[in-house]
């Protein structure tokens, strides 16, 4: 019997979380995807759309020099990612417009037109709250254990709101702890793809990424 029709090996069965037989698909996520931390690669095993196994690695990401406008645009970029992954095109387009304006004019966040309006809109949406509430909640202990920044505490909705606040106040977080990629894998196991991507985006991995490579370089 031909076990790899067309050169692709057949998916093998395995017990899923309900104890039923379900095909296991090997899917690689990254290193380049929309709304995805650049350079991050997750080698996933999927059953249906649930991530059952993950191995994470980082492809070398050069550290570009940044200034304050970059930091703000980056924060807004992350916001665009979460909103787009949450399927809210209107708000994502609004955030993208503000981001472009920030890069173009180099304005400080409080001068940016529409940022406050976006913030109110995001906070007011009960469907967004419903869809992100309770998604991969992290306690303070877990955050410490995984080496995440302290503001990753809470669920995905909390993280989004904090990300929003960071963008609105233009806070830079230079004192982020060193981020370890293998912990990321633990955070997305057991989630379906959409949820896994939301959780990753909410962790604001863009900024963590650079720290990690610096760390490697420093010890290399």
């Amino acid at each position: 019997m031909d076990m790899s029709p067309g050169g692709i090996p057949l998916a093998e069965g395995g017990e899923d979380r309900d104890g039923l037989q379900l095909d296991v698909l090997k899917v690689r996520l990254g290193p380049v995807l929309p709304h995805w931390p650049a350079g991050l690669v997750l080698h996933c095993a999927l059953q249906g759309d649930v991530v059952t196994e993950v191995r994470a690695e980082v492809l070398d990401a050069g550290d570009e020099g940044r200034d304050d406008a970059d930091a703000l645009a980056r924060a807004l970029d992350n916001l665009v990612s979460v909103l787009a992954l949450a399927g809210w095109e209107g708000a994502a387009a609004q955030a993208r417009r503000i981001r472009d304006a920030a890069l173009e004019t180099g304005d400080r966040p409080e001068d940016l037109e529409g940022l406050e309006r976006l913030r109110r809109r995001v906070r007011r949406s009960w469907t967004l709250r419903w869809s992100l509430r309770g998604l991969r909640p992290l306690t303070e202990e877990e955050v410490r254990h995984h080496g995440l920044p302290p503001d990753a505490v809470g669920d995905t909705y909390d993280r989004l709101i904090r990300m929003m606040d960071r963008a609105a106040t233009g806070t830079r977080q230079d004192d982020r702890p060193v981020f370890r990629v293998e912990h990321l894998a633990l955070l997305v196991i057991g989630l379906d793809l959409a949820a896994a991507r939301l959780v990753l985006a909410s962790l604001d991995v863009h900024e963590l990424q650079a720290d990690h490579t610096q760390h490697e370089v420093a010890h290399g």
Partner: peptide
Amino acid sequence: LRRRLPAFRPDM
């Protein structure tokens, strides 16, 4: 309506 609402997550 398309642009006004976030997606309803299929699992929920």
